[in-house]
């Protein structure tokens, strides 16, 4: 059992380290003008934690964990919808102008 859980940890660690490296390169390629939308979208995707909350809220009988899970689902949903929508709003402003520009030129 112990050996098994440490194996799982090492797999997780491998994924973690590789993801950090991907994150490093991807984020450096983001243009500084879009740093605010970057915060918006990272905020939305970090709410993928909703996955854990759904699992906790899943069982049909009520207990403390289920209530915590449901609260987690609500909090994360605020972020998911809020984060993606506010990012969409920001990005559509960046979009509008270049269209207008093309029309002008």
């Amino acid at each position: 059992m112990e050996a098994h859980s440490s194996e799982i940890f090492v797999i997780g660690l491998t994924v973690f380290v590789l993801a950090c490296i991907i994150g490093y390169y991807v984020v450096w390629s983001v243009t500084p003008a879009l740093h605010s939308p970057l915060m918006g979208v990272t905020n939305a995707i970090s709410s993928v934690i909703i996955v854990g909350a759904i699992l906790a809220a899943g069982p049909s009988d009520y207990n403390l964990a289920k209530i915590f899970g449901l609260i987690g689902v609500i909090l994360a949903s605020v972020n998911i919808f809020g984060g993606f929508i506010v990012t969409y709003r920001m990005l559509s402003m960046f979009k509008k102008k270049s269209k207008k520009r093309k029309e002008e030129s």
Binding site: F9, V27, I45, S46
Partner: peptide, 23 residues
Amino acid sequence: GFTLSNNLLIITGALVGASGAIL
């Protein structure tokens, strides 16, 4: 993500963590 052994949470968390750190 580590607690739940969930790779999706680990990857996403690392992306967001790296992004914030670089900013």
